[in-house]
């Protein structure tokens, strides 16, 4: 398995809360568990948001091709940006 600094960095994102926007404009908010080469991502304890509608969906796999945007909880956020 390849192990580059970037992949190491990516690994450090595991288990963090993440927010994924998909092509039909829903937003999924859950714990980052797993990713593969095609950016298929698995989130755990996920909540789904569609505008005002919110529901719990649990463990979901979001195919990479439907992902518009991925955000991850930022632990290193320094005060200057707030």
């Amino acid at each position: 398995m390849t192990d580059t600094p970037k992949i190491r960095q990516l690994r450090s994102y595991l288990n963090l809360r993440s927010r994924i926007t998909v092509s039909d404009s829903r937003i999924f908010f859950g714990t980052f568990m797993c990713i593969d080469k095609y950016k298929n991502i698995i989130l755990a304890q996920t909540e789904e948001y569609r505008e005002a509608e919110k529901r719990f969906v649990g463990l979901v796999m979001i195919p990479g091709k439907h992902i518009i945007k991925i955000e991850i909880e930022d632990l290193e956020l320094s005060p200057e940006y707030i």
Binding site: M1, T2, T4, K6, I7, Q9, L10, R11, Y13, L14, N15, R17, S18, R19, M33, C34, I35, D36, K37, Y38, K39, I42, G64, I67, I68, K69, I70, E71, I72, E73, D74, L75, L77, I82
Partner: peptide, 28 residues
Amino acid sequence: PQFKDITAFLDEVTDEFKIGQLVHLESF
């Protein structure tokens, strides 16, 4: 907590993946 966008980063990093490679939690 605050979020950061890693969309572009993911594009780059997954390019470095080998086919079939996964990055996942040990417990998962």
